[in-house]
Nucleic acid binder design. Structure first.
Lengths: 212, 212
DNA sequence: CAAAATTTAAAACAGGTGTTTGATTCTGGC
DNA sequence: GCCAGAATCAAACACCTGTTTTAAATTTTG
């Protein structure tokens, strides 16, 4: 039968998620995954088919609830008829990211770490998978953001969008490390929500600049 | 003799530089490096000691001229006595990056790609190496930048500094990919200097925002 | 209950990894 | 010309990789 998701599958996904986020894809072997999951080595290839497919499955479990939550948040905003400002859109994005993930028992920091990996590690198949599966939502959000920034020419807008993505993914995927440095140097510790509250105005300013 | 740097060493460094930037560290084997360099497999361990040491050597060849050029640019600015503005500092940083590297026959894009890897790949030894070797220059630059931003409290400043680093490294290390997308969608092609000219005002705005 | 399909298990497979070895060639100083 | 030291080479080493196989156990179903 196909109700298979008894245990083994989830345990593999759980272990893979943590280990991938900690060490990367190539640096994490199937043997490490299966042994920390407490299942047999062959189980990965049996249930997922290959290591690549496992990597994609890990991302699917993250991204699907996130994307759905973002879509319905955008629907809600659109239904309200109110104009969408840049701050609101970014705030929504971050709030949804934090909310939907922790609801599903997923660690937002790990999520960002994995997202960072998806962009920087050399896994062509992953990039293709993500684009084909979640590209529409991405384009919708980007379109709304562009609409909230009249007067910024398209090419400049897209570069700035990438600047923003970079700032976000890079910073949040190394959140632990950066936070540790700042705590050591200034004693003040920052939480993830606090950091996002710093990020929203900073990213907004970057998107809005009027070239002089 | 110690004049050894006849050929083999540089050829290994050249090949490793390109291959690392293209595929990452773990994904590039010593056999691939030595065969594209046209040298014997054992040469890496003979001249460098280990793969880790080779990785560090690749970064040293990039970062030392860059850091030196940046330091002397900062010296020059300091000697002039003029106050240092944020735009100037960022402009210097990027201009020096472009200039000093291409002078030494090194590809700036590859440099950014490698720098991105250094941050995102899981090579503890590399991070430690870079921090211990180039940490002082980094702190000097960060200090000058902080001085040009009175009124921004230290913790906020440092978070924004990381936002900026993220935007820079992330964007430039994927420059080719992003540029290809934008060219396909808008027909307009962007050069690296052009992109840096977009980045300077955007990053400046992000650093300067006054929280409302 | 028995037959069939699904899931687990141990072992082997084929190939790739960084590193080391020991012999051989090259090279510069006397 | 000779010979120590440096550099190159082919081969082997020990280990790890993802994947497959074959058999046993388990679960589902008629």
């Amino acid at each position: 039968m196909l109700m298979s998701h008894t245990d083994t599958v989830s345990r593999i996904l759980d272990a893979a998620e943590v280990l991938f986020a900690e060490r990367g894809f190539t640096e994490t072997s199937l043997r490490t995954i299966t042994s920390t999951a407490g299942v047999n080595l062959a189980a990965v290839n049996y249930h997922f088919g290959s290591k690549k497919a496992l990597i994609q499955a890990v991302f699917e479990r993250f991204l699907t609830p996130f994307t759905c939550a973002l879509e319905s948040e955008l629907d809600r905003r659109a239904a309200s008829g109110l104009p969408l400002h840049v701050e609101d859109l970014l705030g929504s994005l971050y709030r949804v990211g934090l909310g939907s993930l922790s609801e599903n028992g997923l660690d937002p920091q790990r999520f960002m770490r994995l997202l960072g990996l998806a962009y920087t590690q050399f896994q062509g198949h992953l990039r293709r998978f993500i684009v084909s599966r979640y590209g529409d939502s991405y384009r919708r959000f980007a379109g709304l953001l562009a609409g909230a920034l009249p007067g910024v020419d398209p090419v400049t807008f897209y570069w700035r969008l990438y600047f923003m993505l970079g700032a976000t993914i890079f910073t949040l995927s190394s959140f632990d490390a950066i936070e540790a440095i700042l705590r050591e140097d200034f004693g003040a510790q920052s939480s993830l929500p606090e950091t996002l509250e710093r990020l929203v105005p900073a990213a907004t300013a970057m998107l809005k600049v009027v070239a002089k």
